[in-house]
Amino acid sequence: KELVSALYDYQEKSPREVTMKKGDILTLLNSTNKDWWKVEVNGRQGFVPAAYVKKL
């Protein structure tokens, strides 16, 4: 599985998104959309802005 690192804090703005803190390591589930990537963090799945994470 592919991992990404959070470059910035992000506070979810809808139920489809997830909150992350800078430095968090997230499991990348889907990166086909260039703007929003689906990740899993702390057992929750949702979307984060692609520009806020980088692949490890």
Rank of each mutant, 00 (worst) to 15 (best):
T32N: 12
E40C: 11
K54M: 12
W37Q: 01
T19G: 10
E17P: 04
K54C: 15
L28I: 08
K38H: 12
L29P: 00
V53E: 02
L7G: 04
Q45Y: 08
S31E: 14
K55I: 15
V48N: 00
F47N: 04
D9H: 05
W36H: 03
E2S: 13
A6C: 13
W37L: 05
W36V: 03
L56C: 13
K55Q: 11
Q11H: 14
W37N: 01
V48E: 01
D9W: 04
L3V: 09
S31G: 11
E17H: 07
K13H: 09
F47Q: 03
T32I: 09
E2Q: 14
A6T: 03
E40N: 04
V41W: 07
N33H: 12
A6S: 05
R44E: 06
V39N: 00
G43H: 06
E12F: 07
V18A: 05
V53A: 03
V41Q: 09
K21R: 13
P15H: 10
S31P: 06
F47L: 09
K21A: 09
V4I: 09
R16V: 11
L7C: 13
E40T: 05
L28T: 02
N42H: 11
K34C: 12
K21T: 09
A6F: 01
L3M: 12
N30A: 09
A6V: 10
K54V: 15
N33P: 05
R44T: 07
K22T: 08
A50G: 05
L29F: 03
L56V: 13
G46R: 02
E2V: 15
K54A: 13
E2R: 13
K22L: 06
K13L: 10
T19W: 04
M20P: 01
Y8S: 10
K38V: 14
V4C: 14
A50S: 13
G46Q: 02
P49K: 04
I25L: 10
G43V: 02
R16N: 14
K22S: 08
V18N: 03
A50I: 03
W36A: 02
P15T: 10
K22Y: 06
L26S: 02
V39I: 08
K34A: 13
L7T: 07
R44K: 13
Y52W: 08
N30K: 07
K55N: 09
Y8K: 12
T19D: 04
W37K: 01
Y8Q: 12
W36E: 04
F47R: 03
P49Y: 02
T19Y: 04
Q11M: 13
G46Y: 04
W37H: 03
T32F: 10
L26P: 01
S5V: 15
L29N: 02
K1V: 14
N42Q: 10
K1G: 12
Y52Q: 06
V48I: 09
Y10D: 01
S5H: 13
R44M: 08
V18Y: 03
A51N: 13
P15E: 12
A50Y: 02
K34Y: 08
K13W: 05
A6N: 01
V4H: 06
N30R: 06
Y10F: 07
A6K: 01
D35E: 12
V39A: 01
L29G: 00
V41R: 11
D24W: 09
M20V: 10
E40S: 09
K54N: 09
A50F: 02
V4L: 12
K21V: 10
V39S: 00
Y10P: 01
A6P: 02
K13F: 06
L26I: 08
R16H: 13
K22D: 02
K54D: 11
P15C: 11
L26V: 08
G23Q: 03
E2F: 13
T27H: 10
L7H: 05
Y8D: 07
F47I: 07
E17N: 06
N42W: 05
E17Q: 12
D24I: 04
L3K: 11
A6M: 02
W36N: 02
K38G: 06
W36R: 03
K34H: 11
K54S: 13
L56T: 09
E12R: 13
L3C: 13
P49E: 02
T27S: 09
Q11W: 13
K22A: 13
K1W: 13
D9E: 06
Y10S: 01
Y52R: 07
T19M: 04
K55G: 08
D35I: 14
V18M: 10
D35W: 15
A50P: 07
Q11A: 13
V41T: 11
K22R: 12
K54F: 09
V41N: 11
V18W: 04
A51G: 13
Y52H: 10
K1C: 15
S5K: 15
V18L: 14
W37M: 04
K55H: 12
R44C: 05
V53Y: 01
W36I: 03
T27K: 11
K13Y: 05
L56P: 06
V18C: 08
I25N: 04
K13D: 06
K21E: 07
K38Y: 15
K13E: 08
T27M: 12
S5N: 08
L28E: 01
T32V: 11
V53M: 06
L26E: 00
F47D: 04
A51Q: 12
K21I: 09
L29D: 01
V41H: 14
V48R: 00
I25E: 05
D35N: 13
D24E: 11
Q45M: 10
R16I: 13
E17I: 04
K22F: 07
Q45I: 15
K22I: 07
D24M: 12
A50W: 01
L56D: 07
L7P: 01
N42V: 05
W37E: 01
D24C: 07
L29K: 04
N33Q: 09
A50H: 03
L28R: 00
K22G: 05
S31K: 09
I25G: 02
D24F: 04
D35H: 15
V41M: 13
W37G: 00
L56Q: 08
A50L: 02
T27L: 15
T32Q: 13
V4T: 05
K34G: 11
G43F: 05
P49W: 02
N33G: 11
K1Y: 15
A51E: 13
E2G: 10
P15L: 10
F47P: 00
W37A: 05
I25A: 04
P49C: 04
N30T: 07
E12P: 15
D24V: 05
S14H: 12
G23E: 03
V53P: 02
K38I: 15
L26Y: 09
K34Q: 11
G43T: 05
S5E: 15
Y10W: 11
G46N: 01
D35F: 15
R44S: 06
G46F: 07
R44Q: 09
K22E: 08
P49I: 02
L28S: 01
K22N: 04
W36Q: 03
G46W: 03
N42A: 10
E17A: 06
V48C: 02
Y10R: 02
N33A: 09
G43R: 04
L29T: 04
L7Q: 07
T27E: 11
D35K: 13
E17Y: 06
K38D: 04
G23S: 04
V18S: 02
T19C: 05
Y10V: 01
K54W: 07
L3Q: 11
M20F: 10
L29R: 03
E17L: 06
A50T: 05
L7V: 09
R16F: 14
F47S: 03
E12M: 13
V39K: 00
V41K: 13
L26N: 00
P49S: 02
M20C: 06
Q11F: 14
S14E: 09
Y10G: 00
K21W: 08
K21D: 04
W37F: 08
K1T: 12
S5P: 03
Q11C: 13
P15G: 10
V53W: 01
L3P: 05
L29M: 07
L3D: 04
K13N: 10
T32E: 14
S14M: 08
E2M: 14
A50D: 02
A51W: 12
S14A: 08
K38T: 08
K38L: 15
V39E: 00
K13V: 09
R44N: 07
W37P: 01
